[in-house]
Protein backbone atom coordinates (compact mmCIF):
# COMPACT_ATOMS: atom_id res chain seq x y z
CA UNK A 1 0.00 0.00 0.00
CA UNK A 2 2.79 2.38 0.95
CA UNK A 3 4.55 1.60 -2.32
CA UNK A 4 1.53 2.41 -4.46
CA UNK A 5 0.91 5.62 -2.51
CA UNK A 6 4.52 6.69 -3.14
CA UNK A 7 4.16 5.99 -6.86
CA UNK A 8 0.89 7.94 -7.05
CA UNK A 9 2.34 10.93 -5.16
CA UNK A 10 5.44 11.11 -7.38
CA UNK A 11 3.18 10.65 -10.42
CA UNK A 12 0.90 13.50 -9.44
CA UNK A 13 3.89 15.68 -8.51
CA UNK A 14 5.53 14.99 -11.87
CA UNK A 15 2.34 15.83 -13.76
CA UNK A 16 2.00 19.08 -11.82
CA UNK A 17 5.59 20.07 -12.66
CA UNK A 18 4.98 19.27 -16.34
CA UNK A 19 1.67 21.13 -16.48
CA UNK A 20 2.01 24.07 -14.11
CA UNK A 21 3.29 26.79 -16.46
CA UNK A 22 1.47 25.49 -19.54
CA UNK A 23 -1.88 25.57 -17.72
CA UNK A 24 -1.38 28.56 -15.43
CA UNK A 25 0.06 30.90 -18.06
CA UNK A 26 -2.25 29.82 -20.88
CA UNK A 27 -3.85 33.26 -21.25
CA UNK A 28 -1.06 35.44 -19.83
CA UNK A 29 0.99 37.72 -22.01
CA UNK A 30 4.60 36.64 -21.66
CA UNK A 31 7.10 39.54 -21.62
CA UNK A 32 9.46 39.74 -24.59
CA UNK A 33 12.54 39.28 -22.37
CA UNK A 34 11.18 36.01 -21.01
CA UNK A 35 10.25 34.78 -24.49
CA UNK A 36 13.83 35.36 -25.61
CA UNK A 37 15.24 33.45 -22.64
CA UNK A 38 12.82 30.57 -23.22
CA UNK A 39 14.22 30.04 -26.70
CA UNK A 40 17.47 28.83 -25.12
CA UNK A 41 15.97 26.31 -22.72
CA UNK A 42 15.95 23.54 -25.34
CA UNK A 43 19.62 23.80 -26.30
CA UNK A 44 20.81 24.34 -22.72
CA UNK A 45 18.79 21.47 -21.23
CA UNK A 46 19.62 18.96 -23.96
CA UNK A 47 23.34 19.68 -23.69
CA UNK A 48 23.11 19.44 -19.90
CA UNK A 49 21.18 16.15 -20.22
CA UNK A 50 23.93 14.68 -22.39
CA UNK A 51 26.49 15.37 -19.64
CA UNK A 52 24.10 14.08 -16.96
CA UNK A 53 23.56 10.84 -18.87
CA UNK A 54 27.34 10.30 -18.99
CA UNK A 55 27.69 10.87 -15.26
CA UNK A 56 28.01 7.75 -13.12
CA UNK A 57 26.60 7.26 -9.64
CA UNK A 58 29.81 8.62 -8.10
CA UNK A 59 29.47 11.96 -9.89
CA UNK A 60 32.22 11.25 -12.41
CA UNK A 61 31.66 12.04 -16.06
CA UNK A 62 32.66 8.97 -18.06
CA UNK A 63 33.70 10.12 -21.51
CA UNK A 64 36.53 8.68 -23.60
CA UNK A 65 37.52 8.14 -27.22
CA UNK A 66 34.64 5.78 -28.04
CA UNK A 67 32.03 8.23 -26.74
CA UNK A 68 33.56 11.21 -28.56
CA UNK A 69 33.81 9.18 -31.78
CA UNK A 70 30.15 8.12 -31.41
CA UNK A 71 29.07 11.73 -30.88
CA UNK A 72 31.01 12.94 -33.92
CA UNK A 73 29.57 10.20 -36.13
CA UNK A 74 26.02 10.63 -34.81
CA UNK A 75 26.22 14.43 -34.98
CA UNK A 76 27.60 14.35 -38.52
CA UNK A 77 24.98 11.95 -39.78
CA UNK A 78 22.22 13.90 -38.05
CA UNK A 79 23.41 17.07 -39.77
CA UNK A 80 23.50 15.41 -43.20
CA UNK A 81 20.39 13.22 -43.06
CA UNK A 82 18.20 14.73 -40.27
CA UNK A 83 17.21 11.12 -39.66
CA UNK A 84 16.94 9.77 -36.13
CA UNK A 85 17.40 6.17 -37.16
CA UNK A 86 20.60 6.79 -39.18
CA UNK A 87 21.96 8.93 -36.34
CA UNK A 88 21.37 6.03 -33.97
CA UNK A 89 22.96 3.45 -36.29
CA UNK A 90 26.02 5.54 -37.18
CA UNK A 91 26.69 6.74 -33.64
CA UNK A 92 26.37 3.31 -32.03
CA UNK A 93 28.34 1.43 -34.71
CA UNK A 94 31.24 3.89 -34.51
CA UNK A 95 31.08 3.79 -30.69
CA UNK A 96 31.22 -0.03 -30.67
CA UNK A 97 34.00 -0.22 -33.26
CA UNK A 98 36.23 2.36 -31.54
CA UNK A 99 35.61 0.74 -28.17
CA UNK A 100 36.72 -2.61 -29.58
CA UNK A 101 39.87 -1.06 -31.05
CA UNK A 102 41.17 1.02 -28.13
Amino acid sequence: MGDLAAVVIVGVGTYVMRAVFIVALAKKRIPETVLIALRYVGSAVLAALVVTLLTDAGGNVAIGFPEVAGFLAGGGVAFRTRSQIWTLVAGMVVFWVVRALV
Binding site: L53, F71, V77, T87, L88, G91
Partner: peptide, 12 residues
Amino acid sequence: FAIPILFIGLLV
Protein backbone atom coordinates in the same frame (compact mmCIF):
# COMPACT_ATOMS: atom_id res chain seq x y z
CA PHE B 1 24.63 5.44 -24.85
CA ALA B 2 22.32 5.88 -27.83
CA ILE B 3 20.30 8.42 -25.82
CA PRO B 4 23.10 11.02 -25.59
CA ILE B 5 24.00 10.27 -29.22
CA LEU B 6 20.46 11.04 -30.37
CA PHE B 7 20.30 14.16 -28.18
CA ILE B 8 23.57 15.35 -29.75
CA GLY B 9 22.02 14.69 -33.15
CA LEU B 10 18.94 16.75 -32.25
CA LEU B 11 21.19 19.52 -30.91
CA VAL B 12 23.19 19.60 -34.14
